[in-house]
Design a protein around this nucleic acid. Structure first.
Lengths: 343, 343
DNA sequence: GTGAAAGCGCTAACAG
DNA sequence: CTGTTAGCGCTTTCAC
């Protein structure tokens, strides 16, 4: 059973394809097509179970009605949540969403973007980039290609962007720890470390220390590696908790690191927060009931998703690249892992 | 700057579009096109940054090179992980993946499937269905539309399916609890309750009780509601822990319920596992470091994803619906929440 | 070895 | 109010 096309409807009704197209695209009224004819057409379309072929339509109009999302790893709950809202928001506008994971590999991300844009002809891209070089994006910009960055900015590249105030979020967290009497505060960073969001967090951390007259000790800032997360985290935590360093708190730079940090701390039989406090940038549902419930800096994921769609659609409708930035506030969520009393 | 088309290459080289198409699709050799011409064409394509337009190609060939995935909620880590492997697997085959969430709403799922198939012309569908009625799927089957179910089966509908042995997984978990001296074992189910996977888990639970000579008490099986998860779980847990019921363990039917169950138990100031054991079907990374680390039944998510792609591709290549079932084993992961010693 | 031409299903300019 | 026509970019049959 072949699928019905415009032609089938037209022939069955002895009218032209144009007429049918007009009716089905709700342009009948502005062309003054009689109510009666319209009814006839709609009825037949229903009867034949007609659906427009997006590929044909897209070919003709140059619109694929698809947008693309590229993140590091869609199974990271942070991105999964964002993707969910993005899907929801674009669906309301008749668009579909193609999601890809770059695995934090620059070449892979470039390839993905190429594929999405040049082969699938997605109409715009939302990306949490892992790239350090703006070359590919400059290309897109030059071609007025709709693009919005989320979560991570690219140094020296001006574009639409939706993210949070990482610096302030980290600052508040560290300040909270300090106010609870801690002074030796460690941070667990992750490489690749060129990511803007992560650097801002580290800066916020350092600024808070400085502001409160605590001299930063470079041993306090350890870095773990994305590709060997488990081992490198264990090492880093060992270092931070060694007698010579002996931090009172560990601030993990994101949820991914937090998970492995908790594991490492537990493995070392250290108690949280008695032996060491552990806090984290990024909140997960799971952190509500982790052992112990984690104090975190939460990002407004729904808003990030919704806002990014808004900015992208503005560009798509205007048929051009444009710059507009939205920095959303974070929320400090105090639970038990920082040893402070629940306020 | 317009995008380069076949025609542009052809004109620049004074050859025909056909020739260019043949070369670029690696059919040049079988047509005996000279090495030299081929080189010329490839070089020019590179130069003009040519990429085939998928919509045009799709229109001509009837292949969209896209497949669709429909799940309840893509931000549920269980589905996110599966989607990740599916994306990876289909990408290797030159396909893209369109993911949609049904929110456990039957009408929404039907609409989504319609959209994906009839408008986007995805070449096949992988779905964790929430539907109770096989009507839509029977339609697809009749039309030989490639389709594979994952996670959940539809009663009375025969299709390709990839999932786990839910019954056995649940059975093993309950048996483990019994061997650790528990007899009053509660289960937290979730509505909509028609889902095959969930029912199988409940059956496994009951069978284990029976096998070990424990008479099932209907108060032990409480149900919470997807749409009001927090309140209903609190209520259900209260009931299970009330003096008159007083279960020694709570077996939650999936990760979603587990999260809220833990919260409810904590809110009631009950200790796990001293006051009550809590265990769960589905494993999450997060359960490694939850409070306390949870004993779970883990599903092989990667395998589920990879296998579903394999079954779907078989249908797509064969251009027809076909039936093939793959039931994968679960793994009992014993942590601390069940009170048993770590073996 | 290579090219001409048709046509996938749709929309939009233009004609009447 | 409705129809004719052209063409989006590609693949494929057939012809030379």
């Amino acid at each position: 059973m072949k699928r019905a096309s415009l032609k089938d409807i037209a022939e069955a009704l002895n009218v032209s394809k144009t007429l049918v197209s007009l009716v089905l695209n709700n342009k009948a009224d502005e062309w003054g097509i009689s109510e009666e004819t319209q009814k006839k057409v709609r009825k037949k379309a229903e009867e034949l179970n007609y659906y427009p072929n997006q590929m044909a339509r897209g070919l003709r109009t140059g619109k694929s009605n698809i947008i693309g999302l590229v993140v590091a790893d869609i199974s990271n709950p942070f991105y999964a949540k964002i993707s969910r809202t993005i899907e929801f928001e674009v669906a309301r506008l008749g668009y579909h969403l193609l999601v890809c994971s770059s695995d934090e590999v620059e070449e892979k991300e470039m390839k993905l973007i190429e594929l999405l844009r040049d082969r699938q002809r997605v109409e715009g891209l939302i990306v949490a980039t892992t790239q350090q070089n703006a070359e590919q994006f400059n290309q897109l910009k030059k071609q007025q290609y709709p693009l919005v960055f989320i979560d991570r900015k690219l140094d020296g590249f001006t574009s639409s962007f939706v993210g949070v105030d990482n610096n302030k979020g980290a600052y508040q967290m560290v300040e909270h720890l300090i106010k609870n009497g801690m002074r030796k505060i460690g941070m667990l960073n992750i490489s690749p470390m060129h990511l803007s969001s992560l650097n801002e967090r580290v800066d916020g951390y350092k600024e808070a220390l400085k502001k409160h007259g605590i001299k930063f000790n470079s041993d306090w800032l350890q870095s773990v590696s994305y590709n060997d997360i488990s081992n490198t985290t264990t090492e880093a935590v060992k270092k931070l908790l060694s007698p010579s360093v002996g931090v009172q708190a560990i601030f993990t730079i994101n949820n991914y690191v937090a998970v492995h940090c908790l594991q490492a701390v537990h493995k070392m039989k250290k108690r949280i927060p008695e032996d060491v406090a552990v806090v984290c940038f990024d909140d997960l549902d799971a952190f509500n009931f982790s052992h112990p419930p984690l104090t975190t800096v939460a990002q407004p994921v729904e808003e990030i998703g919704a806002e990014s769609v808004r900015l992208l659609m503005k560009q798509i409708d205007g048929k051009k690249f444009s710059v507009s930035e939205k920095i959303l506030p974070t929320t400090l969520i105090i639970r038990e892992s920082c040893g402070s009393l629940l306020a």
